[in-house]
Each structure stands twice: as C-alpha cells, then as structure tokens.
C-alpha cells in the first residue's frame, strides 16, 4: 500500500514553524517511514503530484498568491492543519491590520528612517503578488480542520498530532503542548 502523503507550505510566516517540523530530530526517520512528502519546502516539490492525507499551513494570507496556494492545499488535502500562531491569528504580519495598507508601504519604501529610495518608487510589478488590505488568518479563507497554535508549535506538538491523525486516532494533546507562545 502506498504511504499517505503530507504537504506543507509557508504563507505569510517566517519558516519558524517549518524549523519546528525539523526539530522532531531523529523522529524524522520514523516520519518518512510513515509518510511521503508531496508539495513542500522540505523536499522542494513545487506542485501537487496527487491527493494528500494532511496539509500543514504555516502563516496567514498577506497577498493573493498566499490565497491561491491555500485554496490549492484545501483542494488537494483531506485534512488541513493551521500550523502556528500566524496561520491561526495572523501573527506578527497581522500587526499591520490596524493601519491602512498605503501607510505601511509609505513607511517601508518612502518614510522609514533607513530607507534609501531616490526614485521614490513603491514596487508595483505585475510579477509581484498583490498585497491584501489585511493579513487574514487561514480559517478566514478556507475551512481548517485542526489548529496547532504556538510561535512556533513545539516539535512534540507537531509529532504527536501527525502520529495521531495518521493512525486515525483522536487528537488529544496534553496541557503542556497547547501554548500560544
């Protein structure tokens, strides 16, 4: 029987949650016995090769590309897990949500104390993903099946979750493994 597949992505995140996936240490050897990685920065597969059992989403949606990737994950994954605080509540990127987008761009490209931008140009190439008005937690965009908060969630949290779900067991994490920081 073919192994179930796991896909992962980092949207508006810092890759810290992916570092925490790697932080399961030598259990990664057990993990690749259990699953194959599909689309993921872990193996650098860029597009889905088929149906996945589990999708892990790091980061919220800050631009239109994030939204498309997230929708693609929902389409291809049986179970979608919001991994970390940025996916769950927007995280640090969402601190811009109380400011108009223009003010953020002006600060970053025109007015910031360390900005050097003699042409006073705000990047606007068609190739660049379009910024959204706000950073959206992933459950504002697609249905999410499980949330693992934390900045990042601990390796034990990720490990126990994957093992439970891959063995069709209910997810019942102990007190110590649900933390928001």
């Amino acid at each position: 029987m073919a192994k179930p597949k796991v896909a992962t992505t980092s949207l508006a995140g810092c890759f810290g949650c992916h570092m925490s996936i790697l932080d399961i240490d030598e259990r990664i050897l057990d993990l690749i016995e259990l699953v194959d990685f599909d689309k993921s920065p872990v193996d650098d597969i860029k597009t889905f090769t088929g149906r996945c059992a589990i999708g892990l989403i790091e980061g919220g949606c800050s631009n239109d590309e994030n939204v498309h990737v997230l929708q693609d994950f929902r389409k291809h994954c049986d179970v979608l897990i919001a991994l970390g605080d940025c996916a769950t509540m927007g995280g640090i990127p969402a601190m811009r949500n109380t400011l108009p987008l223009k003010e953020c761009l002006d600060e970053a490209y025109l007015n910031g104390p360390t900005v050097y931008n003699p042409d006073r140009c705000i990047p606007n190439d068609a190739e660049l993903p379009l910024l959204l008005d706000k950073v959206y937690p992933v459950q504002h965009v697609v249905k999410i099946d499980y949330f693992l908060p934390g900045c990042p969630p601990s390796a034990d949290t990720i490990w126990q979750t994957l093992v439970a779900l891959l063995n069709n067991k209910p997810l019942d994490l102990p007190y110590e493994l649900i933390k928001y920081d």
Binding site: G90, Y175, I178
Partner: peptide, 15 residues
C-alpha cells in the same frame, strides 16, 4: 484558554 482546551477561537478576528 489553555485550561478550556482552546486551540483557536471559532469567531473571526476583529483586529
């Protein structure tokens, strides 16, 4: 929230 086992609020964030 920890004691009640909340992993994420079910309501939309208002920011």
């Amino acid at each position: 929230a920890y004691r009640l086992g909340i992993t994420a609020p079910k309501y939309p964030y208002m920011f």
